[in-house]
Design a binder for these strands. Structure first.
Length: 489
RNA sequence: CGGGGCGUAGCGUAGCCCGGUAUCGCGCCUGCUUUGGGAGCAGGAGGUCGUCAGUUCGAAUCUGGCCGCCCCGACCA
């Protein structure tokens, strides 16, 4: 139920947690660190999948599926990759249980695997081991494959959607004949993520390059889109990696070029996760509950009849039927809630809390006047409208809401992005949250020092920003451009 | 892995210090009245008090062990 949501200003973390639970997006499972994604939350993921999948297809990718289990030895083949993931891998050691008089069932010690299997934390190794058999000639390239899957990373501390032991994602893995082509692919998919974040999630993001210490284990370059949450903390919303020839070399993936010479292929990988649901919540929602951009709302319009008796309800059904039909003919998703075990007031509160972008209430007065009451979730404004052309009006309204959410989030980010020029100023400003633009000398040592002293990290080296020479705020050494610092999720 | 908290009906809780078989709210069921911002009244159902052992005539309550989860920090999308 949706009463007494913690206020954001009182305790942002608690607000987030309460909201996820009370808006019925997810709940904690009995398994530590794992969540159950409930229908309302999963429906949002399905909308994300559908939009992204279309964008992947439009850029020439196809879907496939690779095993959840990865032989342990595969991991050893790419040194930095192992190092990056070794600490958080779940390992399967046996393949059978047997009944036991005391404990019910026990692991059968006779059924030990010769080689342990790793539950995938990411699939580069098994995919590259497979690609080796698929790629022989330049004619086999580029290979552009995506997979929708679950992965497991044994995290020390978890948070619903933001960090769970098991999560859902998509991972694209591509192979190319040239370095240049692979870099273009990396950038192309980063741009797909930017468009998706801004046009669908209504979350403004900054495209950038990760520093060495934040780079994906096994990548040459990691690109990212970074978003700023309402509490002033940064959240990485997607990544795209240029893997160079690291995995091709580790797994011997060679192709014969037009000159009949053997060369290692060039690779990329890129992914977004169910974490985006967390980003969506922390970008748009308020003290009244969830706020969803219309393009990702499982249902865009809730229609609520207000009637005193059964006859009136029948009359209302007849009154709204053409309206609902015309809404649906425009591709708008509608829920007509004529459940008479719940009162209208209860439904208002419920749909508001769950983030339905638009609510239409209709009662006896509306039938007399030829009107409906339209309420928008983003501003909580209510307006009585003539029912004539209501589908067009609602269609426009949904567009406005989508746009308004983006503009509000953008304004929030801009108001919380500022340049700082000294480390003293930085230390003071970082306490207020937000993105800080500062000069950095490019060394991991400086970055580490800042992290230890302020808990802030370099979120990214922004792409496409005008070069600006300066001096590192910490070391005083020369710097070619400002980078973005923030405290992050 | 450290620190803190919690475990009592579907959910949220009181009771525990000071032992006597469990409180209240929400939800659920029945009936009537209601319905434009979480309805009212009346009646009703629902609990191995996380688990195991100990103390005791008697344990939700005292003692010890175990299990589970959550929150805060260090690592990570």
């Amino acid at each position: 139920m949706a009463e007494q949501l913690t206020k954001r200003a009182d305790d942002y973390a608690k607000w987030y947690n309460d909201l996820v639970l009370k808006a019925d997006l997810a709940e904690h499972s009995e398994v530590r660190g794992c969540m159950v994604i409930k229908p309302h939350g999963y429906a949002i993921w399905e909308k994300m999948q559908s939009a992204l999948d279309g964008m992947f297809k439009a850029t020439g990718h196809v879907n496939a599926y690779f095993p959840i289990f990865i032989p342990k030895s595969y991991f050893a083949k790419e040194a930095s990759h192992v190092e990056g993931f070794a600490k958080e891998c779940a390992v399967v050691t046996h393949y059978r249980l047997k009944s036991d008089p005391v404990h019910g069932v026990v692991v059968d010690p006779e059924a030990k695997l010769e080689e342990e299997l790793i539950v995938r934390p990411t699939s580069e190794t098994i995919i590259w081991n497979t690609y080796k058999g698929w790629i022989k000639s330049y004619r086999d390239l580029p290979l552009l494959i995506n997979q929708w899957a679950n992965v497991v990373r044994w995290e020390m501390r978890t948070r619903l959607f933001l960090r769970t032991t098991e999560f859902l994602w998509q991972e694209g893995h591509t192979a190319h004949a040239t370095r240049q082509e692979a870099i273009e692919e990396t950038e192309r998919m980063l741009e797909v993520y930017r468009v998706f974040a801004e046009e669908w999630l209504a979350i403004p993001v900054i495209k950038g390059l990760k520093t060495e210490s934040e780079r994906f284990a096994g990548a040459v370059d990691t690109y990212c889109i970074e978003a700023l949450m309402q509490d002033g903390k940064a959240l990485q919303a997607g990544t795209s990696h240029f893997l160079g020839q690291n995995f091709a070399k580790a797994f011997d993936v060679l192709y014969t070029n037009k000159e009949n010479k053997q060369e290692h292929v060039w690779a990329t990988s890129w992914g977004v996760t169910t974490r985006l649901i967390g980003a969506l919540i922390m970008t748009h929602s308020d003290d009244h509950g969830l706020v969803l951009p219309p393009k990702l709302a499982p249902v865009q319009v809730a229609v609520i009849p207000i009637s005193k008796n059964a006859e009136q309800l029948e009359a209302l059904r007849a009154y709204v039927a053409p309206m609902i039909a015309s809404l649906m003919s425009k591709g708008i998703t509608v829920k007509f809630d004529d459940d008479d075990s719940k009162k209208p007031g209860w439904k208002f509160a419920e749909y508001e809390f769950k983030g339905y972008p638009v609510r239409i209430a209709i009662g006896p007065r509306d039938m007399e006047n030829g009107t409906v009451e339209v309420a928008r979730r983003d501003t909580l404004e209510k307006q009585v409208m003539q029912v004539t052309d209501i589908a067009e009006k609602v269609e426009h309204l949904l567009g406005h809401i989508q746009d308004n959410l983006y503009q509000k989030a953008l304004a929030m980010r801009e108001n919380n992005t500022r340049a700082v020029n000294s480390y003293a100023e930085f230390k003071e400003e970082i306490e207020k949250g937000g993105f800080l633009l500062a000069h950095w000398d490019g060394t991991p040592e400086t970055e580490a020092k800042v992290k230890v002293e302020t808990k802030a990290t370099i979120r990214c080296i922004p792409l496409g920003s005008a070069p600006e020479t300066g001096t590192c705020m910490v070391s005083g050494n020369p710097s070619k451009q400002r980078v973005i610092f923030a405290r992050a999720y």
